[in-house]
Design a protein around this nucleic acid. Structure first.
Length: 335
DNA sequence: AAGGCGGGGAC
DNA sequence: GTCCCAGCCTT
């Protein structure tokens, strides 16, 4: 890459960058939260969560003092719930020890890996450390015409990005590469005609744009069926804590036939519509029965069916809850 | 080095 | 349907 290229990329970034809620600040708390939320999650998905989060936890102490359940409730629907838990743990660390003063120190904060440490340090501290995310790997592979397969791109991409980082604007350089990957050098249908680097892009000049980067290997999809029981007592529904060793452990779910083989018995009110959901390489199909309970089983957590569940539910459970409400509303005696 | 971990945007 | 997203942690 020539210095001229670097200048063009930064000029493009100055002109074309999106206005994002965390771009108006160098407050490490806000930048940190945004970086954690953005892990493996598209920016458009993050924005509403980020805005709600900042209303509920405006400052680091607010987060450090919050309960894990309250944090998970805010995180509900974002996925990768360990991120939320570790954000809280990290807030407690920083609340005690003070703010990290370098990328290296950021690495010791819970949930902060090489990418996040470099992102925060470059943006908030002006430290010249390059980030490598999926965008940077893709831009690198195409720009340099590197056909290293996806799993192994990180190392060469890191060396390249670090060699060309602008020491006077490290945060902008990092964000410019990622923004280019998100807006122009997209996985499918890259907009090469608008790319500030097109003239020196090897994939472009060699006509290999649609062959780079070489994709990662994928695991075959596994399909699973699960039977869920939705306990009803009066106007309330019961959920249970998801145990260790299951997906979404620590969140809540309607009991499954497997987790509660005998405790839940009673007449079936309805078979609810099947809920489909995808988890990594698994396809899940939830089949749910609404069960009339004879008593308010104290081993379950009960809440009014017409109110929001006060405990964090993973998305498929939210869909089951919606289906149960639909049924109860259309069959309520007052209707 | 490989696997686990969510959910959804965009085509 | 497909691919993959501002990754990290554990084994």
């Amino acid at each position: 890459m020539r210095p001229e290229c670097r200048r063009r990329l930064l000029a493009w970034f100055d002109k074309s960058q999106r206005e994002l809620p965390w771009r108006q600040t160098r407050d490490p708390y806000r930048v940190w939260v945004s970086e954690i939320m953005c892990q493996q999650t598209q920016v458009a998905t993050v924005i509403p969560y980020y805005l709600r989060w900042m209303e509920r936890f405006p400052t680091l102490p607010d987060l450090a003092r919050a309960s894990e359940e309250e944090v998970l409730l805010q995180w509900q629907g974002l996925g990768y719930y360990r991120r939320g838990r570790m954000l809280r743990t990290g807030a407690q660390q920083i609340h005690q020890q003070g703010w990290p003063a370098s990328a290296l120190e950021w690495r010791s904060v819970a949930g902060v890996g090489p990418y996040t440490a470099a992102a925060i340090a470059s943006i908030c501290l002006g430290e010249p450390v390059a980030v490598v995310d999926g965008n940077v790997e893709r831009v690198y592979a195409r720009f340099m015409g590197d056909s290293t397969p996806g799993e192994s791109l990180q190392r060469p991409a890191a060396a390249w990005a670090q060699a060309w980082i602008d020491p006077s604007r490290p945060g902008d350089w990092n964000q410019a590469l990622m923004e280019l990957g998100a807006l122009i050098c997209r996985p499918q249908q890259p907009q090469c005609s608008q790319c500030p680097l097109a003239s020196e892009c090897r994939a472009k000049t060699e006509g290999r744009i649609d062959q780079l980067p070489v994709p990662k290997t994928r695991r075959p999809t596994v399909e699973l069926r699960l039977l869920t029981l939705v306990p009803v007592f009066g106007a309330e529904l019961g959920v249970e804590l998801i145990s260790e060793g299951s997906w979404w452990k620590g969140l809540y779910q309607f009991p499954t036939a497997k987790s509660r083989p005998v405790a839940i018995q009673g007449p079936t009110l309805a078979l609810l519509p099947r809920v489909r959901h995808q988890v990594t390489h698994h396809k899940l199909a939830f089949e749910s029965e609404l069960i009339q309970m004879a008593h308010r089983d104290s081993s379950l957590f009960w809440f009014p069916s017409d109110q929001a569940c006060p405990w964090p539910l993973p998305v498929p459970q939210q869909k089951i809850l919606a289906a149960a409400r639909d049924f109860l509303n259309s069959h309520s005696p007052t209707r």
